[in-house]
Simulated assay, not measured.
Amino acid sequence: MTTSVSGPTLAQLRDYAAARTLHTEATVQGALGRLGFVQADPIRAPARAQDLILMQRVQTYRAGELERRYADLDIEEDMLPNYGFVTHEVHRLLHPRNVKELKIEQDAPGLGERVLEYVRARGEAHPRQLEAEFGRTRVGNYWGGSSNAATRSLEALHRRGQLRVLRREKGVKVYGPARTGLSGPLSDQERALGIVQLLVRLYAPLPRQSLGYLISLCGYGAPGLQTELRLALKELEDGWLASAKVEGLNYLWPADEPSDRIAPPGIRLVAPFDPLVWDRRRFAHLHGWVYRFEAYTPSAKRTMGYYALPLLHAGKAVGWANLSVSGGELHSDVGLIAGVRRTAAFERALKAELERYGAFLGLA
């Protein structure tokens, strides 16, 4: 049985979510170790999602720092529950993957083995090098278009854990052989238990339905483990998880964490994929309004903007802001929900957050 506790109020749960999530670490590695997974997204508005997530958790973090320091960090690019960055400890939970034959392996039989041999012999490979070696044969992809066959083979080998991303050059992945000499593989049960614990610690407190959805998303990052993941959740409900029904939703969080914490003061502008706002069900329930990510919505139909960053004031989401850089200066377009006033204290807090963004973007 999940450890039942006397239910916190919605405001207390909202404070707890902000307090446990918006932690501050002295180093990038410290933040990565605490998070375990950082979701990635290529849109820069004004910076990539992974940078926006880390700037809220690392003192003096600068845009692009993760990519610049990638080779020196305990980190891998991988998938769980979305594409992003994981520590080596989390990477162990994902491999070996039970991957069925991939489309590129059907379309270009034997090419993967040749590409793997090429990379192992040279130590690394940029997709352009493979084009020169194996030609520019195009094959269909999962999105209805076509891609270079050798590049698709690199991606397939990475998915299987036979290659890893060494670094990026102007955003393009450079691959190398997978790490060797690491600890032996974990059992499927150990992997599933670790994955569910990671999801809870990353996104808690979260509705049980949301945790179920996150587990279903792991079907790509941890294929073949769906049964073990469900069993792991049942095992964790027997003491490791605390639960309470709060205004109609059953929330879960680690039982060893106190839920009576106070949200950090001031204003925070967080990424659309930040763990604090990623779960739209939880966001609407805790904050009382619906946030929309509209980057892929036709401009005429947008209500918040291309890349609206949720605006949190003392842990409560009260609006959003679109940020842009022009002429070496940071510009902001702020929207607030009904009933929120821009008091002098609010303006001071917003000014401080925008100044922090300026330093993060190298404008200060």
Rank of each mutant, 00 (worst) to 15 (best):
M304C: 06
L311N: 04
P272L: 10
R281M: 13
K316T: 11
W320L: 01
G288C: 03
K245F: 03
A300P: 04
L312V: 10
S243E: 10
S243N: 05
G266M: 11
L286R: 04
R280L: 06
L252W: 08
L309P: 00
S326M: 10
G248D: 09
A232Y: 06
L309Q: 01
A284I: 02
G315F: 15
A244H: 08
A295P: 01
H285E: 03
K301L: 15
I262H: 07
L249K: 05
A255Y: 11
L241A: 04
E294D: 04
Y306I: 02
G248Q: 12
S324F: 01
E257G: 02
R302S: 10
S324P: 07
G288F: 02
A314T: 09
T303A: 15
S259Y: 13
D279R: 03
E247P: 05
V246A: 00
F283G: 00
V277M: 04
P258R: 15
L231Y: 03
G266W: 10
A284T: 11
Y296P: 05
W253I: 03
L309W: 00
V318T: 10
G288V: 10
K301Q: 15
P310H: 06
L249M: 07
P258V: 14
R280G: 03
P275K: 14
W253S: 01
R280Q: 04
L249P: 00
W320N: 02
P265F: 12
Y306G: 04
R282M: 08
V290C: 04
L312G: 04
G305Q: 12
H287E: 13
D238C: 07
L241T: 05
R261P: 07
L236D: 13
R282D: 06
W289Y: 13
D256P: 12
L252R: 03
R230P: 06
G266E: 07
L252V: 11
A317E: 05
D256S: 13
A232S: 15
E294C: 10
W320Y: 09
A321H: 01
G288P: 04
A242R: 00
G305F: 07
S259D: 10
G248R: 13
P265I: 06
P272N: 10
A317W: 12
L231F: 10
N322M: 13
D256Q: 12
G288A: 11
A255L: 09
L252M: 14
V246M: 00
P298Q: 10
A263T: 07
G315P: 08
G266I: 08
K234D: 11
D274I: 03
G305N: 14
R302T: 08
R268I: 02
W289A: 13
A314V: 14
A271E: 05
R280Y: 06
M304R: 09
